[in-house]
Design a protein around this nucleic acid. Structure first.
Length: 569
RNA sequence: GCCUCCUUAGCUCAGAGGAUAGAGCGUCUGCCUCCGGAGCAGAAGGUCGCAGGUUCGAAUCCUGCAGGGGGCGCCA
């Protein structure tokens, strides 16, 4: 619709230029926008304001000249109006709005799709927690964010892959193994010195207990270093399979690929170079590597970083950054993604410049987006909940999910823009349902389903009805002429624009905004327009179709957020 | 020291270079013989942190300053 309107204006502008009424060369691109104030119509263009200087005309005079050349069109109501400093305002005809009902109902869940991605492959990598303990609340936010972003990108025409990078290499894994080993020995009733730097959280003991359940006391006789390795590997598998995958799945987040950091360190096929070595070799080939004081450096300052970065330390160890470079080399050069989006916690923002530099150096400038997810501050009834991984005093994300539910948790995380810290009050998210917007939106959906059940002749709310089949096709939609009905139609039509913006800005929170707007618009319609009216079958049919279209758009929007759309609540 | 995010109504926050800056909560006033009141309508509430700049037009872009959150210095 937006493009169609812009084109109509552009044609008028061209016609006016050709008739020598306006002197403009080149003819500018016409952009239309939605006016903030509905009194200014459905679409407005500022082309006259922008071009006034080049044309040597007063903005309003120029706008009048364009408006006068606008051809009549069945989708446009009346004549364009010139307003304010020189805007041209256009109003959609009721027929164009009423058609939205048919569009929505025939497209179903595909309504609102746009083609920004052109089918190109994008990878979204998110959560990527160390497999050494339970997910914390921040991980939960990034899970909601990444998954919703993936859903939005799919709706915007991208081919999306969700990936979890498992940091299963490095000293934190060894510390984890030693900590679990100590707890395991304790569980077997053996003397065990707890490692000084060990993880003290209660979950370590739980992991150890699970291992003991699997293996009995059989491991207790192993030499300590060997036991630590066994515990590391067994504990890793438990955390990954029984915790991370289970919790994420429980909130509706399923990854396509779990990428192990170890594969980057491992020798290649036939004992060839590891991916880290290959990636460094590639950078060397491209001339971005130098050696200094026994270390191998990447000249990241050539790509906007503020200092050069070490890839291999003088002791021969590769840095964490080297693995990250290899990982992204794998994403771009091995797996060939057209675009990669990484969601990192705010504690990693210092790595943005060097990572972007690495992607650019490898020949993929502009293909890497780094989204920094800000932290979550947890409160319970107004009081801050303190958390520390080392002392083990923390609320895990799983506990939060159990307490407030996946829908409320996801919605609450997504409601804030990504670069805002979230203050999450468990009490508010769970108890004060009137204050909780997720229920407001879900309630609108449930209410529609209730209307449809009623229309289908169900006597009680418990009766099962095929909701989608209630509203008949072929209703006379021209009966939808009340202000509240037209306003609702306008809102439904906005979905594709919201998807476009959310995809472009990687900002799912725009969808929560829209969901709340749409729910409010529906509730307003509901109080003004009675849907089921036995004496007026034609009007009832038209309104049922409208209500059904609203149901579809609400469900689709909630679906993009990963939140359920309940038929009753 | 450097980086980064934030600063908009009493509170929590939206805001796509445009027209009279919006929503929710809170406060106040109304609306159920009627499809779900987890709802609706109305009122009050603002020097968009401060100062410059760019622009026909700035909450929005640029620079500086102030205040607050988080982070960084061949650690993982």
């Amino acid at each position: 619709m937006r493009d169609k309107v812009a084109q109509l204006v552009a044609e008028a502008l061209t016609a006016a230029v050709e008739a020598d009424e306006i002197a403009l060369d080149p003819i500018p691109t016409v952009e239309v926008e939605r006016p903030r104030d509905p009194a200014h119509g459905d679409w407005a263009t500022n082309v006259a304001l922008k071009s006034a200087k080049a044309a040597g005309m007063q903005p309003r005079v120029l706008a009048e000249a364009i408006a006068a050349r606008m051809a009549a069109h069945p989708d446009i109501d009346g004549t364009p109006e010139v307003a304010g400093p020189g805007f041209i305002n256009l109003r959609l005809s009721p027929a164009a709005l009423q058609r939205v009902v048919t569009d929505v109902r025939s497209a179903g869940a595909a309504f609102g799709r746009v083609d920004l991605g052109g089918g190109k492959r994008v990878q979204v990598e998110f959560v990527s927690a160390n497999p050494v303990g339970p997910m914390h609340v921040g991980h939960g936010r990034w899970a909601a964010l990444g998954d919703s972003m993936a859903r939005v990108l799919e709706h915007a025409g991208w081919q999306v892959q969700r990936e979890f990078y498992v940091n299963d290499s490095g000293v934190q894994m060894d510390i984890f193994g030693a900590s679990v080993a100590a707890r395991y020995l304790e569980a077997c009733g053996r003397e065990a010195a707890f490692p000084e730097e060990g993880y003290r959280g209660a979950y370590i003991a739980e992991v150890a207990a699970e291992i003991r359940e699997q293996e009995g006391d059989a491991l207790a006789g192993l030499p300590l270093p060997e036991l630590a390795v066994r515990c590391r590997e067994l504990g890793y598998a438990l955390v990954l399979e029984n915790h991370l995958k289970r919790v994420l799945h429980g909130m509706g987040v399923d990854f396509d690929v779990w990428f192990s950091e170890r594969t980057l360190h491992a020798p290649g096929a036939n004992g060839g170079p590891s991916e880290i070595e290959q990636a460094i070799a590639r950078l060397r080939e491209l001339g971005h590597i130098f050696e200094h004081e026994g270390a191998i450096w990447f000249r990241s300052t050539g790509f906007g970083d503020d200092k050069d970065r070490v890839l291999r330390k003088s002791d021969g160890e590769y840095t964490y950054f080297a693995a990250d470079v290899a990982y992204h080399w794998d994403k771009f050069d091995v797996r060939g993604f057209d675009r990669v989006i990484d969601i990192w916690g705010a504690d990693h923002h210092g790595y943005v410049a060097r990572m972007k530099a690495a992607a650019a150096a490898l020949g993929h400038p502009g293909k890497l987006d780094l989204v920094i997810g800000q932290l979550v501050n947890l409160y319970r009834d107004g009081e801050a909940v303190r958390m520390s991984k080392r002392t083990g005093e923390m609320v895990t994300f799983e506990e939060l999910l159990d307490e407030v539910g996946a829908d409320a948790a996801r919605y609450w995380f997504l409601r804030r823009s990504t670069d805002q810290q979230v203050d999450f009050d468990i009490g508010v998210a769970k108890e004060q349902s009137a204050e909780n917007p997720v229920y407001y939106v879900q309630y609108a959906h449930a209410r529609i389903c209730s209307i449809l059940r009623k229309a289908a002749g169900a006597d009680t709310a418990d009766e099962t009805v095929d909701i989608a089949a209630v509203a008949p096709a072929g209703a006379d939609l021209s009966l939808l002429a009340e202000d509240a009905e037209l306003t609702l139609l306008r809102k439904l039509a906005e979905l594709s624009e919201v998807v476009e913006l959310a995809a472009r800005d990687l900002a799912p929170h725009k969808l929560t905004r829209f969901a709340e707007d749409l729910a409010a618009t529906f509730h307003q319609f509901y109080t003004v327009c009675k849907v089921v009216q036995p004496g007026q079958p034609d009007l009832t049919a038209a309104r049922l179709a409208l209500v059904d279209a609203t149901r579809i758009v609400l469900a689709t929007t909630l679906g993009l957020l990963g939140v359920s759309a309940p038929e009753r609540m």
